[in-house]
C-alpha cells in the first residue's frame, strides 16, 4: 500500500504543487486548507507524514502543530514544516516549548533532495 502524505497549506499554489509532486512520486495524498481541517483529516486519513505550512491565517498552523504534538495518537507522525526564509524567526518563537519538527524545509524547494528526505522520514515512520 502506498504511503500517505497529508499536506496542510492555505496557499493554492503549494497545495497543487505538493499534491502533484507527491502523487507523481507514488504517494497517496490528501490536502487540507487550514489547521483545523488538517486535524480532522489526520483522524480519517491516518497519514504517514504531514507537511505543514506554519504561517497560516488565524494562527491555525501553529495551533495544528501544537495539537499534533500534544496528542498521543499523532505525536509520532513526522511533520515537515515548509517556510519562507523570512519566517524563520517567527517560526522559532511560535514553536518554543514544543519538540521541533522532524524537518524544516526552506522555500524554494530542491525537488530531488526534498523527495529523498521525505522518503527517509516516511520509511522510518512506517
Amino acid at each position: 500500500m502506498a504511503a500517505r502524505i497529508l499536506v496542510i497549506d492555505d496557499e493554492r499554489d503549494m497545495q497543487v504543487y505538493l499534491r502533484t509532486l507527491f502523487c507523481r512520486a507514488g504517494y497517496e495524498v490528501e490536502v487540507a486548507g487550514d489547521g483545523a481541517e488538517g486535524l480532522l483529516r489526520v483522524d480519517s486519513f491516518h497519514p504517514d507524514l504531514i507537511t505543514l505550512d506554519i504561517l497560516m491565517p488565524r494562527g491555525s498552523g501553529v495551533a495544528a502543530y501544537r495539537a499534533l504534538r500534544e496528542a498521543a495518537a499523532t505525536r509520532a507522525i513526522p511533520v515537515v514544516v515548509l517556510t519562507g526564509l523570512s519566517d524563520q524567526a517567527t517560526l522559532l518563537r511560535d514553536l518554543a516549548g514544543l519538540p521541533p519538527p522532524e524537518l524544516i524545509v526552506e522555500k524554494p524547494i530542491d525537488r530531488p533532495v526534498f523527495l529523498r528526505q521525505i522518503e527517509t522520514l516516511v520509511g522510518a515512520s512506517r
Binding site: 504543487y17 502533484t20 509532486l21 524554494p108 524547494i109
Partner: peptide, 15 residues
C-alpha cells in the same frame, strides 16, 4: 518566491 511559483506551475503542467 514568484519564480518558485512559476517553476512549480511549469512542473505541474509538465506532469
Amino acid at each position: 518566491n514568484l519564480l518558485m511559483g512559476l517553476e512549480g506551475g511549469i512542473f505541474v503542467v509538465n506532469t
